[in-house]
Computed example of a mutant assay.
Amino acid sequence: MGIPDHDFQLLTTCGDESEALLVRALLEADDIPCIVQGEQHRSMLGVAGAFIELRVLVPAGELEHARELLKSTAREESPVAVATGTPDEDSEEAHCALHGQRATRTCERCGNFLCSSCDGVSTGLCEDCAERKGSGAEIQRGRKRKVVAWLILLFMFGPLLLLILANLLGALLG
């Protein structure tokens, strides 16, 4: 599918390649073009690529439609019934790790199970993710990823650059 030249804006960031593939498939099924920034770099760097953030971009005109699509999909996938009490060991139902109640949805960021008693249910985030979001940890994580990426590049290409510089200086002085 060719992507026309548009002003693309950030829809969401993804934790891994599988999440990015799911978001891409959802958007493309609804004829919304998208770009996943960082997926090629992430795959090229292998294990070190995990530090590269995956950003899903959509055309500015489709941004609100794409947001609604993601929200509606998250609502459709979450169970509607809520039960209280301790989890049944033989049950295959998901339960909130914090309260032991049957899960009604999952955290939009990390996928942890949430119940109706969780404080973060209204925001769609578990307590940990809500705390991180409010503390600016996303910005810190982005900065750390950039520093690690630069260190990897320096490690990979630093010796080559030093060799080139030494040859240039040798040619100028010799």
Rank of each mutant, 00 (worst) to 15 (best):
A48V: 13
V148F: 12
G136T: 04
G61D: 09
E19Q: 08
D31G: 09
T84Y: 09
C129N: 01
R105D: 05
E127R: 08
Q9N: 07
H99Y: 05
I32E: 00
A60S: 11
E127W: 13
E89T: 13
L11D: 00
G111L: 00
E53G: 06
R42C: 04
G46L: 02
R143G: 11
V23H: 00
I164M: 12
L161R: 01
A29N: 00
S72Q: 12
G2T: 10
S116K: 10
I152N: 04
G38H: 03
L21K: 13
E19F: 11
G85M: 02
E62M: 14
G61N: 05
E39N: 08
G142L: 04
C115T: 00
G49H: 02
S135F: 10
G100L: 11
A20E: 04
S43M: 06
C107E: 03
G120P: 03
D88E: 02
V148M: 07
C96E: 01
P4E: 15
H65R: 12
L69Q: 00
I164V: 10
L165A: 12
T123Y: 01
Q9W: 06
L173P: 03
L98N: 14
E93H: 13
Q37D: 12
E62N: 08
G111T: 01
R102F: 15
C96A: 06
R102C: 08
L45M: 04
L160F: 08
A94M: 09
R102E: 07
M44K: 09
L163I: 11
L63A: 09
S117T: 14
C129L: 01
H95A: 10
V47W: 12
L70M: 11
E28F: 05
R75G: 10
I3C: 06
G136H: 06
E76Y: 05
G120Q: 02
V80G: 14
S122A: 10
A81H: 05
E77T: 14
A48Y: 14
D30I: 15
L63E: 01
P159K: 04
M1T: 11
T84V: 09
A137T: 08
L98D: 14
S122M: 09
I32Y: 00
F155C: 11
G38D: 02
G124H: 01
R132W: 01
R109Q: 10
F8R: 08
S122I: 15
A74C: 07
G120Y: 06
S43R: 02
L11R: 02
L168K: 12
G38M: 10
G136S: 05
L70Q: 10
F51H: 10
R24N: 10
A130K: 10
V80L: 11
A166F: 07
R141W: 15
E19D: 06
L63Y: 03
A83S: 08
K144S: 15
L172Q: 13
L160D: 05
T106Q: 04
R105Y: 10
I164Q: 11
E17N: 08
A94C: 06
G120W: 03
G38C: 01
D128C: 08
H65Y: 08
G49T: 09
G124D: 00
G170C: 11
